[in-house]
Design a protein around this nucleic acid. Structure first.
Lengths: 199, 199
DNA sequence: ATTGTAAGTAAGTTTTACTCACCTTTGGGT
DNA sequence: ACCCAAAGGTGAGTAAAACTTACTTACAAT
């Protein structure tokens, strides 16, 4: 368990923003605490006043970015009525977030999953909430008859999440543009209708 | 570019197997070079005779595991005739590999993607080859009419890869069993037929 | 026999995450 | 107005771990 991501004192904010900016050009491992402190204009020791760990800093920055992500998702599905529309909105909004916030995408997809401490962090709790929202929509769709009732909703959830993540994985890694609308439309088409040709 | 993963001298083999075993219980970051050398029964310096880096060691061990993975895949699709069958075989064989070789799965899904050096490694070259094979089958299926011709084959590839990876992600992280056959059948069903209910 | 090369060692060095004891500022209660 | 406690912030220091380098041993080929 790590401390939650409150706004906090100026020093903490400076550290988080400095680190976040460094993550735009470098990977977590190669960013040093000295570098963070230097860019933030504080001393190295202050980092450990507000963060238990270098990883805790990573997790709290992720938490911060994911909050905006979450809001984007909820705004995206708010107006939608049907399950299909909601799912399409989630796919679209998720891709859009990864496209416009590479730091979020890189942290979430590449940096955090290798250490167990992440899964005890507040950031991961938010991610779980996001996954639960998705699952809820899928279940609802199965009840209303929009979706097939004979499939495992958990698996549908995983396929959708996997499709979203893997679709922008390479672009995130090599810092290339993501064509959100066509990618989103394509994923939705494939997952909803399948890839086989039915004469 | 890193040196390829030749079998090599006894010291190198001992280092790689020791490291591989350590990866069963610990994550990359928390395994020290001293620990590796100790378990291998060699000195710490020898690691740097055969590996440019601690990460190079990781990449070469991945390369080694992925070779077996690749063979499993090719054996899986060898007997199959249709595109559909081949895709199902790839999904099944991939899940099976991740299920029975957690070190491979953990390295590939959790540990390597955060550093650019991986993408210049021989291990990544193998992964690309695997992805190309998958893409080839998809393209072939679109030509023969088994798959819809109006979709982007790259996107189909990404959805399938994403589905495979995300399906076993949690199990790999928390070291839980993977029910390969039902997961494979489910993924294939969803990706081939889609999730929407067609009256 | 000799020479050249690959395998292996052992003792550094440096970097880097993290600690700790110490200042400085702020603000609320009496 | 003053105290004092707590929060904000500092800077020197430590320990550990990745990596280097100078050296030794085995050993195959000429």
């Amino acid at each position: 368990m790590d401390s939650s991501a409150k706004p906090g004192p100026p020093g903490k904010i400076k550290i988080m923003t400095a680190f976040s900016h460094l993550m735009e050009t470098k990977d977590f491992q190669s960013i040093t605490t000295a570098e963070i402190a230097g860019k933030a204009g504080v001393t190295e020791g202050l980092i450990y006043k507000y963060f238990t760990d270098k990883k805790d800093l990573l997790h709290q920055v992720l938490h911060q970015h994911f909050t905006a992500f979450q809001e984007g998702i909820e705004a995206g599905i708010a107006t939608k009525e049907t399950c299909i529309e909601k799912l399409a909105a989630i796919v679209s909004a998720s891709l859009a977030s990864y496209a416009e916030n590479r730091v979020l995408a890189r942290i979430l997809l590449l940096e955090v999953r290798n250490s167990l401490s992440y899964f005890e962090s507040g950031a991961y709790a938010m991610v779980r909430q996001y996954a639960r929202t998705l699952l809820g929509i899928i279940r609802q769709g199965m009840e209303t008859g929009e979706l097939r009732p004979d499939i495992d909703p958990y698996l549908v959830q995983k396929v959708i999440l996997g499709a979203i993540e893997h679709t922008c994985l390479k672009q995130v890694i090599f810092d290339r543009k993501i064509d959100v609308s066509t990618a989103a439309a394509g994923i939705v088409d494939i997952v909803f209708n399948g890839v086989t040709h039915h004469g």
